[in-house]
């Protein structure tokens, strides 16, 4: 149980995917204009990351590792994630149309989200078992959502501030992102993680 809590703190705060490991920067800047869309994207990422972490780890244990095919990790994981997202989309459309409508536009974006692939590869690096991999995927997704929602809040405030002409738009967002990231630096060393 202690381990799980440590894993959660590590994935959400200390080694936050976006703000500490700089994975998934594209959606971080792309869909963080409104808190609402940030939550939608975050929900979709949590969903896909959890399932993909579980399945990629299982496939690694079943096929890749026993036959010494570790070098195929990246290509096989991308294949798995892409098919998985496609499958989830089809199933959601049929059974939970309301969730599909709110997540629908973000799901295809996740196919190529490096944070999802990053979680799958880190699971192998850190040698987590299937259960821990799934949890790690879940917590990483939560961390991603946290970063996205926090930053969306910052950006909503930015809309109403007096910004120098040359910094309007993406430049000020990048500066704000670096400041948020620096704030997360404060978690480094928490509980010796």
């Amino acid at each position: 149980m202690n381990n799980v809590i440590l894993l959660a703190i590590s994935a959400i705060l200390v080694n936050n995917f976006v703000l500490s490991q700089f994975l998934g920067i594209c959606p971080f800047l792309g869909v963080s204009k409104k808190i609402e869309t940030a939550l939608g994207m975050g929900g979709a990422v949590i969903f896909v990351m959890t399932i993909s972490s579980c399945i990629t780890r299982a496939i690694y244990d079943l096929f890749l590792y026993p036959y010494g095919l570790d070098y195929l990790n990246t290509i096989v994981f991308i294949l798995i994630i892409a098919s998985l997202v496609q499958f989830v989309e089809t199933v959601l459309k049929k059974f939970i149309p309301s969730l599909y409508r709110s997540l629908g536009i973000y799901l295809p974006l996740i196919t190529t989200n490096c944070a999802v692939l990053g979680a799958a590869l880190l699971n192998i690096d850190k040698n987590y078992n299937v259960l821990y991999s799934t949890l790690y995927g879940l917590f990483s997704g939560v961390g991603f959502t946290l970063a996205l929602v926090l930053f969306a809040g910052v950006r909503e405030k930015l809309e109403y501030s007096d910004i120098p002409e040359s910094l309007k738009g993406l430049p000020i967002s990048l500066i704000a992102a670096s400041l948020v990231s620096m704030a997360f630096l404060g978690f480094k060393g928490l509980f010796g993680i």
């Binding site: 096929f63 890749l64 036959y67 290509i75 798995i80 499958f87 089809t90 199933v91």
Partner: peptide, 20 residues
């Protein structure tokens, strides 16, 4: 292995898109 996985996923997705 990669070909087989691709094939399985492909068939699975085709089946899913018909079924759902």
């Amino acid at each position: 292995l990669v070909g087989g996985l691709g094939l399985i996923f492909g068939i699975g997705l085709a089946y899913a898109s018909k079924k759902f």
